[in-house]
């Protein structure tokens, strides 16, 4: 998957590109509006990560450029402004999603993959991890052909873990992924624990491996190497 990251902050660029490269993405970076337009004119990307506040122009102008050129690249806006109007404005202009800063890199990864999945209209909506098959359209998970009876939240949580497989996910990041920003972490940490416990039980009951590993002191990891 090819990703173009348009962000003027060097440190943030390093963080994101480093993280996404490890995920196996090809990441290119542009720090200004002009260089972003240059790259977009010459190359094709699957996803464009767009910071709104750029030194030489508003990031939304890049979005307008893409739409004007009938591009079908996915666009994820990264913004320091968490204002509803900005969000609505960005989505109206044709962005696929909007992620306010600060964000968890695992959340960014999940959002990118989600956009990618939605855009692969022709492709299969199925993800396979070992003996587990996940259908992101029907929201079904099968372990060795046994359909799991999962709640919506359990499904979302499992997908989040799988998308970020072999990485440590903090309870905070899981909680925010599931309930958004307005849920306070402390309140929901027990909640994450409950859901994880149920999920594990359901997977192992269906004969699946116990992929979800508790990282003491930090969080959870979907470990495919066990």
């Amino acid at each position: 998957m090819k990703v173009l990251l348009v962000e003027d902050n060097v440190e943030l660029t390093q963080n994101v590109s480093g993280y996404l490269s490890k995920e196996g993405y090809v990441v290119e970076c542009a720090s200004t509006y002009a260089s972003a337009i240059d790259k977009l004119a010459g190359f094709d990307y699957d996803i464009v990560l767009l910071d709104i506040m750029l030194p030489d122009n508003n990031g939304l102008e890049i979005l307008k450029y893409l739409k004007a050129h009938n591009s079908d690249m996915g666009v994820l806006i990264l913004s320091a402004k968490d204002a509803l109007e900005d969000r609505i404005h960005g989505l109206e202009l044709g962005a696929d999603d909007y992620l306010p800063k600060p964000f968890h890199l695992s959340e960014l990864n999940a959002r990118i993959k989600s956009i990618y999945r939605r855009r692969q209209l022709s492709g299969s909506s199925e993800m396979v991890v070992g003996e587990i098959r996940i259908d992101t359209k029907t929201l079904e998970i099968r372990v060795a052909n046994i359909l799991l009876d999962l709640t919506r939240k359990e499904f979302e949580m499992f997908l989040y873990l799988v998308v970020n497989k072999n990485r440590v996910l903090t309870k905070q990041s899981i909680a925010e992924h599931l309930w958004g920003d307005y849920m306070d972490s402390m309140d929901s940490f027990d909640f994450v624990y409950q859901h994880i416990k149920n999920l594990r039980k359901k997977i192992t009951a269906a004969g699946g491996k116990d992929y979800i590993q508790t990282m003491y002191g930090s969080g959870y990891k979907f470990n495919t190497n066990i």
């Binding site: 963080n15 480093g18 968890h104 695992s106 440590v168 003491y216 002191g217 930090s218």
Partner: peptide, 25 residues
């Protein structure tokens, strides 16, 4: 928000490095 995102991202990357003790995590 931007430096906060950077710091938080660095910590997230740090968390995924090998051989962290429970205390460090």
């Amino acid at each position: 928000q931007t430096p906060l995102t950077i710091a938080s991202g660095k910590l997230e990357i740090l968390l995924n490095t090998e051989k962290l003790s429970e205390e460090q995590s």
